[in-house]
Design a protein around this nucleic acid. Sequence first.
DNA 1: AGCGATCTGCGACTTTCGGACGAGGCGCGG
DNA 2: CCGCGCCTCGTCCGAAAGTCGCAGATCGCT
Lengths: 211, 211
Amino acid sequence: MLAPPTRASVLLVDDHALLRTGVANIINQEADLHVVAEAGNGVEALAAYDRFKPDVTLLDLRMPVMEGVEVVRRLRERDPRARVIVLTTYDTDEEITRALKAGAKAYVLKDISADDLVTCIRDVLAGKTYLAPAAAAKLAEDVTRVQLTPRELAALRLMADGKSNKEIANELGISDRTVKTHLGHLFEKLGVTSRTEAVKVATRRGLVRLE
Amino acid sequence: MLAPPTRASVLLVDDHALLRTGVANIINQEADLHVVAEAGNGVEALAAYDRFKPDVTLLDLRMPVMEGVEVVRRLRERDPRARVIVLTTYDTDEEITRALKAGAKAYVLKDISADDLVTCIRDVLAGKTYLAPAAAAKLAEDVTRVQLTPRELAALRLMADGKSNKEIANELGISDRTVKTHLGHLFEKLGVTSRTEAVKVATRRGLVRLE
DNA sequence: AGCGATCTGCGACTTTCGGACGAGGCGCGG
DNA sequence: CCGCGCCTCGTCCGAAAGTCGCAGATCGCT
């Protein structure tokens, strides 16, 4: 048995220890890959990156302490050559586009097979990008999607938190009439007529996160 | 190296192929355990159970085709000795209590370590039960928790779907006055004063699922 | 500079909600 | 039998939500 001259190094970031060790097993079975470090949240991830400068980072988006997209952004900030593969459960278009805009090289879902994951890693190492079919489809939809203004988004978030128009008005420092305007425009863009409906479709699109 | 006389058989059910192979690796490294089959949804799980009669079943709750709790129920229906470990990401009290009531022997979260998971499997094989600390805490809360009536729950679900009182009334075949009564009671039980707020806490408690 | 699109803000009006009462019927266990 | 919880339906009313029209500010593009 001969040791390969160089194995590409992988940083594994996910808040589920179980998945980390599972994926680490898979990767370490490959002759040309090995996991140099694991991290359970964004802060740990940045520290581990600085220390090990991995060739590629596998990153879950939903994490405590620091959100995944933010991690992508910071990684690319401190090292523009950082190759990040987003490996997550969810495929809301918001998260996909934000991750890609932040500089992720690939977006794959956790229902991917071990073989495909390894292929994906090698692709990214070779400078390619990789999109899960579902992610690509969502992305295509997004092009035609209406953008929300900052105010609309702010009002949406507060509304989804159960706040009344008056409370939203106070927090945003505006009149409750204006809140209504923003929400009215929001409703139109989302194709709904009530706040509860709005919360539903906004959640589906990943614009807000309830739990 | 000597082969152990009998290795306990494990059925692995999760819609994420990646996690399945990862966990399978972990389990198969143990001398006294081995994975006999994997399934990606509830229907496959039932079929695999009938075929292999595994000593223990590791089951994710959130799956396509058939929901996890339903799978637990059916497994225990056809074989009351079936030992099911729920292995999931979420810990809403609703899901925990429902899974345990359906007959699950253990409830663990995916942030568990590989070692602890193996311990959990052995515990369950030995006839014990196992609760993740977070799950146990939620369960304790649940004892004091107010129960919703069927009508309240139905109204809640429709409301969370964005329906107006009038629409809910139509779908339930009752007057919109009655809907208000149900929602009024619901609000009181949830400790809220508006529908949007109600959707929020109901989602947090796992009473409704938005996406 | 001019023009238009967009974001932001506001007032008035109608509809819907939510709270505070009450009240009858049904089923179940003490 | 009699309470008790659930479901049902009602009225009144104030408050909130949602719709309409309108206007100043800003920014990009020609």
